[in-house]
């Protein structure tokens, strides 16, 4: 596959992969008001990066393990009905700080922290690409398979029960999917901006959508557009790639918002 030898092509495919995986999941993050939940999981992943470096494991493995543990810890917390906002905030920031401290203790490796905080999409290898697309497609398949049950549980846990679904189990599906997206997206946008890729495309798609499915598809289109535009901008203006992608998504959010406002005015 010679065309994958071009690092720009690999970068574009990696960005598109993350955008595709993040779109349907991001919709649920928005509908269920789980934005902070996503951040806490993503920030904890830096701790997994530190572990991976210390144990000489692939970064994705450590990040996935810690993200899964964190995601389930947080969802347990939310079932207990703690003051969620504060609890999640404490967890998210402490996980990030702990992770950064842990990375600094890893001996013998010169770690480019920036690559894990903001992503290093131009250094994506063929095997990274395989991990991103396998993980991404697994998440899309999982969310698509549980779609109706997830939607019902989002509207009303009691309604889900009465329809024969267990809303807690559906919540776990989302938790697991979130951990996978975090793990595969580190290379692309870094732990600090994964939350943005989950949140901004669905938020931008909202005014254009009349059904949940349309919103998920539009979020995917917007995410892909942002990824490719951001990559182009990074190349043209020599700006950091991950932040450029998120900036492109933010511009799309504002643009769509303004245009729909004007149309309705």
């Amino acid at each position: 596959m010679t065309f994958l030898d071009d690092f720009l092509i690999r970068a574009a495919l990696a960005g598109v992969g993350v955008a595709v995986a993040a779109a349907p999941l991001g919709c649920f993050v928005v509908w269920r008001r789980m934005a902070y939940f996503g951040d806490a999981t993503a920030h904890a992943a830096i701790l997994g990066v530190a572990l991976s470096l210390a144990l000489s494991l692939p970064v994705t493995v450590g990040a996935l393990a810690v993200a899964v543990i964190m995601a389930f810890a947080v969802s347990q917390l939310s079932h207990r009905g703690m003051a969620l906002d504060t609890g999640l905030g404490v967890l998210a920031h402490s996980a990030l700080a702990l992770g950064l401290v842990a990375v600094s203790f890893v001996q013998g490796v010169r770690v480019d922290l920036g690559a894990y905080l903001f992503g290093d999409i131009l250094a994506v290898t063929k095997s990274d690409l395989a991990v991103i697309w396998l993980g991404g497609l697994a998440v899309v398949a999982l969310v698509a398979w549980r779609w109706s049950a997830l939607l019902t549980a989002t509207l009303s846990p009691d309604l889900a029960h009465a329809s024969g679904f267990n809303p807690k189990r559906e919540g776990m599906v989302l938790t697991l999917a979130l951990a996978v997206v975090v793990a595969v997206a580190i290379k692309v946008v870094g732990v600090l901006l994964i939350g943005a890729m989950l949140l901004i495309p669905p938020a931008a798609a909202r005014p254009l959508a009349r059904t949940p499915e349309a919103m998920a598809v539009l979020a995917g289109v917007i995410g892909i557009t942002a990824a490719i535009t951001g990559l182009w901008a990074a190349f043209a203006f020599d700006s950091p790639t991950g932040p450029s992608m998120v900036s492109a998504a933010a511009l799309l959010f504002v643009g769509i918002g303004v245009i729909t406002r004007l149309k309705h005015a």
Partner: peptide, 27 residues
């Protein structure tokens, strides 16, 4: 076979849902 009418539904304003689509949930 239970048909359940919940006390209230929390439909977040970010969730676009027409009546027709809602009636197709969960099946």
């Amino acid at each position: 076979k239970i048909g359940y009418v919940p006390q209230k539904l929390m439909i977040d304003p970010t969730l676009p849902l027409t009546v027709g689509r809602f009636l197709n949930l969960p099946r």
